[in-house]
């Protein structure tokens, strides 16, 4: 599935997915975590989503399953009084950053960009829009847009090194 199609079909479902997650987990923080996880899962499997007839039903099922996983882990997740705090996670022995850690860094770097640069990066990277369309949406000249995007990429690269 193309990035822009993914964004058009799945992103508008976020509110409904959150409501379902909240009903199942009765926790705002956990509900949002589940919704974020489900969107990441959908994004990573987007190539296989073209055959999905009802994106909403599919995504709701994913939320339900993710919520069930959370509930099954709940007793273990709750900190027990008197037990020492878990040690902070360290990178794996081969030096590669954990997937979540890497994503966290990238997100942090993305959020540190000026709003206009951030929006352009999202439109280009996530939605895969062509320069002309981004220029139309943002009202920027295509040439300035390329310069802006290049600067944003440099910043992201520096901040995630």
């Amino acid at each position: 599935m193309e990035n822009d199609v993914f964004c058009t079909r799945f992103l508008p479902l976020s509110d409904g997915l959150y409501r379902l997650a909240y009903h199942l987990l009765e926790s705002e923080a956990e509900a949002e975590d589940v919704v974020q996880d489900v969107f990441l899962k959908l994004w990573r499997t987007r190539d296989a989503l073209d055959g999905i007839r009802s994106p909403k039903a599919y995504a709701l099922t994913l939320v339900r399953n993710a919520a069930l996983d959370r509930l099954r882990q709940r007793p273990r997740l709750r900190p027990l009084n008197g037990l020492p705090e878990a040690e902070p996670r360290t990178p794996s022995p081969d030096g590669r950053l954990d997937d979540r850690e890497r994503l966290g860094r990238l997100k942090e770097a993305l959020l540190s960009l000026p709003p206009q640069q951030r929006e352009v990066v999202i439109l280009r990277t996530l939605q895969g829009l062509p320069y002309e369309e981004i220029a139309q949406r943002t009202g920027m000249h295509p040439q300035s847009l390329r310069v802006l995007l290049s600067r944003a990429r440099k910043t992201l690269k520096t901040k995630t090194k």
């Binding site: 990035n3 705002e28 994503l103 966290g104 959020l111 951030r118 999202i122």
Partner: peptide, 21 residues
């Protein structure tokens, strides 16, 4: 059920980070 403000934006940012990754 009230949806937290900015949820859609946060999802987009997360996915953009995944796309960058």
């Amino acid at each position: 059920v009230a949806v937290p403000t900015g949820l859609g934006d946060r999802i987009r940012e997360n996915l953009a980070a995944a796309a960058l990754a």
